[in-house]
Structure formats: C-alpha cells, structure tokens
C-alpha cells in the first residue's frame, strides 16, 4: 500500500471516527433544525432562539443527566447500575425528612436545614453505592444482578421511610435551590453544569478515569498493570450512587416533596442518554460530553414534540429510534475501524 493511499484512508477513517464520536451532538443539531423549521412554519416562532425553551429543556434534562453522569463511568467499566432510580428516590425521601427534622426538631435555620437535607440525601446514597460495589468487586456478583437486587432494596427502603406517602418539605431555601434562578439561569442547571465539569475532569484527566477505560476494555490489562480493580469497582458504583443521591436531594427541593418513586422512570432515560452519547454497553468507550448530548437529545425530543403538538406516543417512538440508530452507528464503526489488522 502506498503512503498516500494509507494516509487517505486514515483521513477518511479520521472523519468517520469524528462523526461517530460526535454523533449525539449531530443528532441534537438535526433535532433542533427539525423543531426550528416546524415551529417557524406552524407557530411563527423560533424553537431554539428562545430562552424560555432552552431553560425548560435544560431543567428537564438535569435529573436524567445527573443519573447518566455516574452511569457513564459504570457503563465505560463494562458494568451497569440499575439501582440509580430508586437510590434517587431514597435520597429524595431522606433529604426531605432530614431538612424537615433539621428545622423542625433541631431548630436550625432554613438555610442550614437545606444544607442538612442535601448532605443527608447524598450521604444516604453512599450505602447502596458501597453495597453495590462490594457485591460486584468482592463477591463477583454480575453488575446486572447486583444492582437489580439493590434496585429492590433501595426501593423498599425508600417506600418504608416515606410510609407510602410523599414527604412534603416546607423550606424556602430548599425550594430556591430547586426552582430559583441566578442571572436568569436555573440553579438546577448551574449545579448540573458544575457536576458535568467535575465528572469530565474525573473521567478524562485522572488516573481513576483512565483506569475506568482500561478496566472496561480489558479486565486482564487492568489487573496485570497492577490496578486495584476491587477498589476501582467500588469507587465506580459509589460515584454512580452519589450522582443519584444528588439528583434525589435536588428533586425534593424542586417539587417541595420527597417521593420514593422520584427516579423510577429515569433509570432507562439515564442509560439511553449514555448509549446515545456513544458509550458501548460492552464497556471501554463513552465520554461525558456524549452523555450530556444524549440527555439533551432525549429532553429535546420529548419537549419538542409537545411543543409542536404531535401525538404524545411519538415521543417513545422517536427516543427508541434514536437509540437504535446510535447503536447501529457504533457497530458499523466497529466493523470499519476494528478490523484493521493488516496494515
């Protein structure tokens, strides 16, 4: 093979990899164009140059995205965390109780009570995270099974603590965290952006992130390189649970009530966001930017279809189609790029 042919091929592969890498953002762009055209022709208004819509989609995307961020790490490590939804519910219930108790029983001021609630929500999530991690790392329970078990346990615990009710929180500061704005930007969005940056740093710039990729691609490689894979696994599931805990604690502020079922419908959305974002469920690939795009794709579809007033059931179809296309793109690039052994 001549040098020019090789480099031409490499270039075309480079372009292809770039498209594959950015596919979630490309989906998002196409969706936005679609809704923009529709909104302009049907309602004579812009879909995207519309601060109101952007805010609404931003808020809508925060909870599934927070779950998806932790899930990204877990999926890159070739695992899965099915318990995030009810870990979020557990955290929502506990943070609501804790904030109420802090102001009601301990007599703390509302701001401190709010912090107390947030910390308690995130703190309680450490338990399912740690148990998941120990089950998977030490007892070698497959992640699917281990976290499915935790799905049930966290759910039961959440319902028990809530007594089957939602737990109302009456705390102006807490409500402000959930619904307030700073310079017009919802606080929920600000918090989520900060967490996104933090997770991006963790995944792309630290040994922890690097080892997560290596572990997901080849357990043997990680083990023989002297990486402590048990401790890595435990950290991964704790991280995922903490993200869910934060999502739950914020839920209580936003809806002024903690509910055990707060995160139940979000589990699949979180996994979908990660997969649309380019991660493979076989592990080894994925990144935070992709998950952000994936969560925005899901939120935009669901919001946009209501905005342009399409029959609601199309939302499910549309999200499903995007997931399937995303996986197909992933597999075709594997076939094209993975088979190059003869250069």
């Amino acid at each position: 093979m001549t040098a020019t042919a090789t480099s031409a091929r490499q270039e075309s592969h480079g372009l292809l990899s770039m498209i594959v890498e950015l596919r979630a953002w490309i989906f998002l762009l196409l969706l936005v164009i679609f809704f923009e055209v529709w909104a302009r022709s049907a309602y004579g208004q812009s879909f995207v140059i519309n601060a109101y819509n952007l805010q609404a989609i931003g808020i809508f995307a925060t909870a599934p995205l927070l779950l998806g961020l932790g899930q990204t790490f877990v999926i890159i490590s070739a695992g899965i965390d099915l318990s995030v939804g009810f870990t979020m519910g557990l955290a929502a219930v506990v943070s609501a109780h804790a904030a109420n108790m802090a102001s009601g029983v301990l007599g703390l001021d509302l701001f401190t009570a709010m912090l107390f609630g947030l910390v308690a929500g995130i703190g309680v999530a450490l338990i399912p995270g740690l148990v998941n991690g120990l089950l998977i790392a030490k007892l070698r329970v497959p992640p699917f099974i281990g976290t499915l078990g935790m799905y049930g346990v966290a759910r039961g615990a959440a319902y028990l603590l809530a007594g089957g009710m939602t737990v109302p929180v009456s705390n102006a500061w807490y409500a402000w965290i959930g619904n307030g704005r700073v310079l017009g930007v919802p606080i929920l969005v600000i918090i989520t952006v900060i967490v996104v940056l933090l997770m991006h740093y963790l995944l792309s710039q630290t040994r922890f992130g690097q080892h997560t990729y290596a572990f997901g691609a080849s357990r043997a490689a990680a083990v023989r390189s002297g990486i402590n894979v048990s401790s890595l696994t435990i950290k991964l599931y704790v991280l995922s649970a903490v993200c869910a805990g934060l999502a739950g604690a914020l839920y209580s502020g936003r809806f002024a009530a903690g509910a055990a079922q707060a995160g139940e419908p979000l589990l699949l959305d979180s996994i979908a966001a990660v997969v649309i974002g380019g991660a493979s469920l076989f592990g080894g690939s994925g990144n935070i930017a992709g998950t952000v795009a994936g969560a925005l794709v899901i939120a935009t579809i669901q919001y946009g279809l209501v905005f342009i007033n399409v029959e609601p059931f199309w939302q499910f179809v549309a999200v499903g189609v995007v997931i399937i296309i995303s996986v197909l793109v992933d597999q075709s690039q594997r076939r094209l790029l993975g088979g190059r052994k003869d250069e």
């Binding site: 690097q210 990729y213 290596a214 997901g216 691609a217 490689a221 002297g226």
Partner: peptide, 20 residues
Amino acid sequence: QDLALADNLPVGANIFLGRE
C-alpha cells in the same frame, strides 16, 4: 498471548497504565 492491552487506549496510555 492476549497481550493484556487496553485496546481503547493509545500506546502511551498502555505503557503507563497503572502508573500514569
């Protein structure tokens, strides 16, 4: 024989795996 490489990482990351 399996080389124990992390296929998804570049050469440098494989050389330094665990000691980045």
